[in-house]
Simulated assay, not measured.
Amino acid sequence: MKARVFTPHKLDVEAFARDGASLQGEWPAQALSRLADSAAPEAPASAWPAVRWSLEGEARAEPRSSDKQIWLHLEASARVSLTCQRCLQPVSEDLNLSRWFRFVRGEEEAASLDADSEDDVLALTRSLDAQELVEDELLLALPLVPRHETCPEPLPHSNAEPDEEAGEAQEDERPNPFAALAALKGRGPAQ
């Protein structure tokens, strides 16, 4: 019997799981356009290392039924450069994920099982684009607020402490808003 050939861009998840098949590979980071859009301007995705991924299918015996549950295990890793929200310089982030997905026959069943389960439940489709799935999961793994542990360059406003004399001179130069109010009050109608 000839072994099936599976491709990640049109993956028959059910056959992949029933065969207990596996796939792995790398994609250039810029091939994942939505992930590449998150890049710091000074460190575009074309300079990032390749995104590594692997998929394993598994058909598990379903309790109280002769049917098999369709499962897909995804592992992926990427190194991305985002903009630090403190110093606005590029910060490298390592993304590593390992997820199991259970596939069921319809959207309604997926929604009801997903709400009640800790597992990720998806509706089974005729073909799955694994690159989109990998990109979705990497996007979800991005930090909400990327930042360095310690910024490489001090922030402009945090490293310069104003000289006390210069600070006093600045205070003297600023007009007091209440002085103008007092002047207006003193010019009121004569009594």
Rank of each mutant, 00 (worst) to 15 (best):
L97H: 00
R18F: 07
E62N: 05
E14S: 07
W53A: 01
R52Y: 10
E137D: 06
A179N: 06
R105H: 09
L144I: 08
L11G: 01
D12T: 05
L23Q: 02
R105C: 04
S92I: 00
E58M: 08
A47W: 08
S117L: 08
E132H: 09
A160T: 15
S112R: 14
A169F: 12
T7S: 14
G20Y: 09
Q131N: 11
E107N: 00
A31L: 05
R4I: 06
L113M: 10
H157N: 13
R34T: 05
K10R: 15
R79Q: 11
S117R: 04
P90C: 07
S98R: 03
E109I: 06
R99L: 13
T125S: 13
Q89G: 04
V91M: 01
W100L: 07
P41C: 08
N176F: 13
S158M: 14
P63C: 01
H157F: 13
H148W: 08
S158F: 13
D163M: 03
W100S: 04
F101K: 00
L32P: 00
E168Q: 14
A115D: 15
E173P: 00
R79T: 13
L74D: 02
E62G: 03
S81C: 09
A50N: 10
Q131T: 09
P63D: 09
E118F: 15
H9A: 13
A50L: 08
V13I: 14
A47Y: 06
R174E: 14
R52K: 13
